[in-house]
Amino acid sequence: MNIPPSISTIIWQQPYPFLFTIISGSHLYGFPSPDSDYDLRGVHILPVQEVIGLETGNETIEVSEVCEALEIDLVTHDVKKFFLMLLKKNGYVLEQLYSPLILTTSPEHEELKFIAKNCITRHHSYHYIGFAATQWKLFEKEQPHRVKPLLYVYRVLLTGIYLMQTGIIESNLIQLNQVFNLPYIPDLIVQKLSGLENSNLSDFNVNFHQKEYERLRYQLQEAYELSTLPEAPSAKAALHNLLVRLRVCVS
């Protein structure tokens, strides 16, 4: 994909070196509208003196800017905070780590991808069940109904099912639907791609999509029960060692 120059400018303006930066949001999920903003995510590395001293650096950096009519939101976490989130049932940070839309990378980024495979557990299903429920409630309460939260519902549920079945993070709804073959997904994506970010649905059947939401939620629960993924992460020692090396490198 073509990366607007203003994105690179914002990345290089940040005060700390990056382990990696990626594009998340609708661009990662496969359905950006023409006016979609760019959600940038990443991991920065605080130097030792900003970790052990009385004055510590920012564990989280958030930047929101509008550059040439382009809205850009950047959120990065320090490596320790990110590693601790990896050890929890947090599918969102896994999706960031394995995003194919990479802006900056490093050899340690690749190493972390390998280590983080041992952070994936059966219990990540709770993240996706909860996220889908939140998006469905948002979708239900809005009148008229918007296409974006409905696409998020399907994207989240399919990502969760696929993760439970394969142990692989796949965030792109177009790629996921090549596996699940839901016939209504392409039309919903076309509506999102051709309209504005907050476009309303056309030719919409609420009861049909509610039944599909419930069916896929049950399928995710069933995939969790049948999953052979581990009960708990086993990557803590490897993450610790990588964290120490990264701190030393930027001290």
Rank of each mutant, 00 (worst) to 15 (best):
S6I: 06
Q219K: 10
L246I: 04
G167Q: 01
R41I: 01
H77G: 02
I129W: 08
N241P: 00
A116V: 06
T60H: 12
P47V: 11
I169H: 04
L28N: 03
I174G: 00
P5F: 06
E214W: 08
V179R: 07
E225V: 07
L193R: 08
A133C: 09
E197C: 00
L157V: 04
L97A: 05
I174D: 06
Q13T: 13
H127D: 03
L182Y: 02
D73K: 10
V179M: 07
A69V: 03
S125K: 02
S36D: 13
V244F: 04
I7S: 08
I168L: 09
L28S: 01
M1C: 11
P5G: 07
R215G: 02
D39G: 02
S99T: 09
N241E: 10
H127N: 05
E55N: 13
I45E: 06
N205F: 13
L246V: 05
V190P: 00
L229N: 10
K81R: 14
L239M: 11
Q175H: 07
H240M: 15
Y38E: 01
V66Q: 04
T159F: 03
E111C: 03
V63L: 15
A116S: 15
P17R: 02
S64L: 04
L151N: 06
T105L: 14
S251V: 06
P15E: 09
E170K: 13
N2P: 06
V244H: 00
G160T: 02
I52A: 14
K89C: 06
L94Q: 10
L176T: 04
T76V: 10
A69L: 02
G30T: 08
N205W: 10
L86T: 01
Y162A: 05
L101S: 00
R245M: 12
I168D: 00
L182R: 08
S125V: 12
P17C: 07
H27R: 14
T9A: 12
C119M: 09
K113M: 09
S199I: 04
Y98R: 07
H124L: 15
F208P: 04
